[in-house]
């Protein structure tokens, strides 16, 4: 695309959202990066050096000299952080895999339904997205608790004698994440499947492929983009998830979002939390870049 200076009117239109994002999104991220290089002190705000915009350029250089990598060193030294990154990635990956296994058949069943029902069904599958995240996670507490609805039902039916211990485990967190993010995964898979030309499946059948062979050689590979998009859309926020591990998880499910929250509000170690955030961002950039390159490669062909 040609890069050219914009007309004055266009510049005015652009400047409002641009400046807003620069101030409320880009600048804060820069601040996070900066504070991650500060030292933790007992003060308000609890980090040093503070950033003085009025001190001029010289002071800025001076401040730069006092930058410290303590927070990052602390991150490496503290096994809590390292483990919580691993836990976060593991839980997010497992949840994403399960969500795809649940979402794909559902999306396929919706796409193969009668045309008149399709819109309604996909609407129904996505509708929970519009309801409160917090409430949906809360609903699972009542189900999964030791004296909860699931155990109550299973014990009444005589299927188990002792209540299952799901609540406050990693399994509960995985269930909660799969449940909460399912609409994000169903929708892109549905879109990819819905776009597929029916004639492609017919062509495969015409050339002698049975239903299973047709699915694995045509339907599935052609919906891969939807699967990847759905997986990414879920995986990235799930890694940093705070509410679900906090409400459904136990003490052994220390995900990074929770650790940062605790460092921030309870330990008041802002540089550590900031460093944690920067590292998390760096980790999450990897799948995004991979996805971008995959997209552009697909588009160039």
């Amino acid at each position: 695309m040609p890069r050219r200076p914009l007309a004055r009117g266009a510049r005015a239109v652009l400047s409002a959202p641009y400046l807003w994002l620069a101030f409320f999104f880009i600048a804060p991220l820069a601040l996070v990066a900066k504070i991650s290089l500060s030292k933790s002190v007992v003060a308000q705000p609890p980090y040093a050096p503070t950033f003085d915009l009025y001190a001029g350029f010289g002071a800025l250089i001076e401040a730069a000299r006092t930058l410290s990598f303590d927070a990052y060193r602390g991150l490496v030294a503290d096994p809590l952080y390292f483990e919580s990154y691993l836990t976060s990635l593991g839980v997010a990956a497992l949840s994403t895999a399960i969500a795809i296994l649940v979402a794909y058949p559902l999306a396929l069943a919706i796409v193969r339904s009668d045309r008149r029902w399709r819109g309604f069904l996909i609407g129904l599958a996505v509708a929970p997205f519009w309801t409160s995240f917090l409430i949906r996670v809360y609903a699972w507490i009542a189900i999964l608790k030791e004296e909860g609805l699931l155990n109550h039902a299973l014990m009444t039916l005589g299927l188990i004698r002792e209540p299952l211990e799901i609540f406050a485990t990693t399994m509960a967190v995985v269930i909660g994440i799969v449940y909460s993010y399912l609409p994000f995964v169903v929708l892109p898979i549905y879109n990819a499947l819905e776009k597929q030309d029916v004639a492609l499946r017919e062509a495969a059948a015409d050339l002698g492929a049975g239903p299973l062979r047709t699915f694995f050689s045509v339907t599935l590979p052609l919906s891969a983009s939807g699967v990847v998009a759905g997986a990414l859309l879920m995986f990235i926020p799930a890694v940093g998830e705070f509410v679900i591990p906090d409400l459904l998880g136990g003490s052994d499910t220390m995900m990074i979002g929770r650790v940062m929250w605790n460092d921030f509000f309870e330990n008041r170690d802002w540089p550590a939390a900031s460093a944690g955030a920067i590292v998390l961002l760096a980790i999450l950039v990897v799948p995004i870049v991979w996805f971008e390159r995959r997209q552009t490669r697909g588009g160039a062909v």
């Binding site: 492609l200 062509a203 015409d206 052609l222």
Partner: peptide
């Protein structure tokens, strides 16, 4: 007989070539 068991082949209007 289902299509994949029939000894005929078809050339589709959209060609239906497998894009992948």
């Amino acid at each position: 007989l289902p299509p994949h068991r029939r000894p005929v082949n078809m050339m589709f209007q959209s060609y239906a070539l497998f894009p992948h």
